[in-house]
Amino acid sequence: NITNLCPFDEVFNATRFASVYAWNRKRISNCVADYSVLYNLAPFFTFKCYGVSPTKLNDLCFTNVYADSFVIRGDEVRQIAPGQTGNIADYNYKLPDDFTGCVIAWNSNKLDSKVSGNYNYLYRLFRKSNLKPFERDISTEIYQAGNKPCNGVAGFNCYFPLRSYSFRPTYGVGHQPYRVVVLSFELLHAPATVCGPKKST
């Protein structure tokens, strides 16, 4: 009989979030998941669920729940959905087409922007091929755009693959930082360890 609440607040209220290319994953298990708490945590810009209804979450049980978190800019949030393409979905964080879970995003301009520009958040701009779903690539190998090998040196047709967002508070919403948490629900042929409040007794 599990009584402890799932530590969603640790994920959502973390002081620092990860850069999207090096997104963070927390496995959540053996706890009571009260998803209604999430609705009250922040004024969400996005709370979209796929393959599951957000209002039914509190009635369900899962084997595992994974919470992935990272920062992107406002106009990239739409890429965090099944079947999307674009720089983020292709080279940084890719959801599977049959994704079961929820994408939660909110504006973090007050936390993640600086007047002089916050350069701490990076994204991958160049990659030889698209990522597979939930693949994480943290390599910093020089990207070869031409025929000549780069031998690890940046220059003509040889690019450092990561680029930094420079978040400034005066930017338009599309270029402001957004914190994203992706909850993916895993149903294996194994005992369910993460249940809503109704199912945990």
Rank of each mutant, 00 (worst) to 15 (best):
V173C: 09
I28S: 02
S184F: 08
G101M: 00
Y119H: 15
G51K: 09
S29T: 14
F12L: 08
I88Q: 03
T46K: 13
W23Q: 04
R124C: 04
F156M: 15
H189A: 15
K114P: 10
L125S: 15
V194T: 10
S166T: 14
A33R: 05
T15I: 06
S129H: 13
R73Q: 09
S113T: 10
Y119L: 11
S113K: 06
V37K: 13
A22C: 08
P161T: 04
K199F: 14
V37D: 09
Y119A: 15
N24C: 06
N109L: 08
S36L: 05
V32P: 04
K132M: 11
P191C: 08
E10L: 07
K56L: 09
N118Y: 07
A14Y: 02
G74E: 08
R124W: 03
K48W: 05
V77W: 02
L188Q: 14
V153H: 14
N109E: 11
T201H: 14
V182A: 01
G155L: 05
L122V: 12
T140D: 09
S166K: 14
N147C: 09
V181S: 00
F44V: 13
I2T: 13
F99Q: 00
R124G: 04
Y178T: 08
P197E: 12
N1T: 09
R168F: 10
N147E: 14
Y178V: 11
V181F: 03
S129C: 10
H189C: 08
S200K: 13
K48L: 05
I138K: 09
A14N: 08
G155C: 07
A18P: 15
Y93W: 03
K56W: 02
T85D: 07
L41T: 10
V20L: 02
N92E: 04
T63A: 11
R78Y: 12
D90G: 04
D97P: 10
T63R: 12
F17Y: 06
D9Q: 12
V11G: 02
N120Y: 08
K114L: 10
I2V: 13
W106C: 02
G101I: 01
S129V: 12
F8T: 02
S113A: 13
F99R: 00
N147Q: 13
D137Y: 00
V173G: 10
F99I: 00
S108I: 04
Y121E: 03
S36K: 11
G152P: 06
E141C: 07
Y91N: 08
N109C: 09
R136Q: 09
L5Q: 11
R16D: 13
E76I: 00
S116H: 14
G146R: 06
D137V: 01
D59C: 04
G86H: 01
V65D: 01
K114A: 14
P197R: 15
A18I: 01
S116Y: 12
F99H: 00
F45A: 15
I104R: 00
V194N: 11
Q84N: 05
V173R: 12
V71G: 01
L41N: 13
W106N: 04
V194Q: 11
G152L: 06
R78D: 14
W106D: 00
R179H: 05
G155V: 05
L187C: 11
Y178K: 02
G146V: 04
V180L: 03
L57Y: 05
S166H: 13
K26D: 04
V65W: 03
K114S: 15
K128D: 12
K114F: 09
P197K: 15
V181W: 02
D75M: 07
T46P: 03
G196W: 08
C158W: 02
F185S: 01
G117K: 09
K148P: 07
L5G: 10
F47R: 07
P54L: 14
L187P: 09
K128L: 07
V20H: 03
G155W: 06
Y123E: 07
C150I: 04
Y35C: 06
V115H: 14
P54E: 13
L111K: 10
T100A: 07
N4M: 09
R27S: 09
C102A: 00
Y119W: 10
Y39I: 12
N13C: 06
D68E: 02
N147K: 13
E76N: 02
K132N: 09
D112L: 01
V11K: 03
F8R: 00
P133L: 01
G74H: 03
L187Q: 13
Y159E: 13
F44E: 15
D75P: 03
N64S: 12
E10C: 05
F62S: 07
V32H: 09
T63I: 08
G117T: 10
K128S: 13
F167C: 04
I142V: 13
P54N: 09
A145P: 06
W23A: 04
D34E: 05
A81W: 06
Q79W: 01
C61N: 13
K110A: 13
S164V: 08
E141A: 10
P161D: 02
R73A: 10
V32N: 08
N24Q: 14
L122S: 15
D75G: 06
A67T: 03
P177S: 05
S69M: 04
Y119C: 12
L162A: 04
K199C: 12
P191G: 14
A42E: 11
P54V: 12
A190D: 13
N87L: 13
V52M: 10
N64M: 10
A14M: 06
F185T: 02
A154R: 13
D98I: 04
Y21V: 06
C102V: 00
P149C: 08
D9G: 11
P161H: 01
I2E: 13
R124H: 03
Q144F: 02
D112C: 00
K114T: 15
L95C: 01
A105N: 03
N24G: 07
Q144G: 07
A89W: 02
L111W: 13
L60Q: 11
T55K: 15
N130K: 15
S129G: 12
N40G: 09
S53R: 09
S139N: 10
D98Q: 08
V32D: 07
A89G: 04
S19D: 08
A18K: 06
C61A: 09
S129K: 14
S166E: 13
G152Q: 10
Y50D: 01
E10P: 04
F99A: 00
A145G: 11
A145N: 12
R27A: 09
N13S: 06
S36V: 03
S139T: 13
R27G: 05
K132H: 10
G51W: 00
F47G: 05
K114M: 11
L125E: 15
D137E: 03
T3C: 03
V71R: 01
P191K: 13
A33T: 08
N24P: 00
R27I: 13
C158T: 04
P96Y: 00
F167D: 06
S184C: 13
Y178H: 15
V181K: 00
F8D: 03
C6L: 02
E135C: 04
K94W: 00
S108H: 04
S139L: 03
N151C: 08
F62K: 07
C158R: 03
T100K: 11
N109T: 12
N87P: 15
A33L: 14
L122T: 15
D97G: 08
T170R: 10
D59V: 06
Y93D: 02
D98H: 09
S139H: 06
V65F: 09
I80S: 02
S53L: 08
L187A: 11
N87E: 09
